Simulated scan of single mutants.
Amino acid sequence: MKPFFSLALSVIAVSLLSTLGAIAAVGPGQQAVIDHYAAAAKASDPAFKGFSADRGKAFFLAKHSANPDTPSCSTCHTTDPKQMGQTRVGKAIDPMAVSVSPQRFTDLDKVELWFRRNCNTVLGRECTAQEKGDYVTFLATQ
């Protein structure tokens, strides 16, 4: 029984440290943006329980059918958000991961501008507050 308890405690400790590491990557600027989207998500859905980096990653990698030229975020931003991306016309895009580009997602007006443009291009519609918050949460933990 003692080895099982020790193993379980180790698993919990590693999980907690991983979570704390992910949370530590979110700076005050990103947290303000996340808080803004949390308030908007709660206003549109009172059952809102919080953002998920896993949902954000799935959204980032998902293939959307609205535009065959840019079917996913990763079409331009690559599947590794720590790497440079490239627009369809060849312009370089700085990495999306906050660990590599710490100023990402710190200016709400800029974030909204890019979400408006890119969500319409990729999805053919505006992103929801839930999608935006999940997306920022994912990239803030990368």
Rank of each mutant, 00 (worst) to 15 (best):
S10Q: 03
F4G: 08
A53V: 06
M96E: 12
V98Y: 06
P81K: 02
L123I: 01
C76I: 05
T137P: 01
G90Q: 01
A66I: 04
K49R: 12
G56T: 05
L7F: 08
A43H: 09
G50F: 02
A43N: 15
K110L: 07
S52I: 11
W114T: 07
G90W: 12
P102L: 03
A53E: 06
I34A: 09
W114Q: 11
T128H: 08
C119D: 09
C73V: 12
C127A: 13
Q30E: 07
D109A: 12
D80S: 12
S10E: 02
Q86R: 15
Q142F: 10
T19Y: 12
I34L: 15
S15V: 10
R125S: 08
K63P: 06
R88Q: 10
P68S: 12
P102N: 03
V89H: 07
A41P: 15
S15E: 09
G21S: 12
L20C: 08
Q83C: 05
P95R: 06
S72R: 10
S99V: 15
E112D: 14
V33E: 12
C119Q: 03
I23S: 10
Q130F: 00
K91Y: 14
Y37W: 13
E126P: 00
V111L: 01
A41Q: 14
M96D: 13
L113V: 00
T121N: 03
T106Y: 02
T75A: 11
Q31P: 02
S101T: 15
V98C: 09
M84K: 13
H64F: 15
F5A: 05
A24K: 14
G133C: 07
F48L: 04
E112W: 01
V11A: 15
K42W: 00
L123K: 13
S15N: 14
P81N: 00
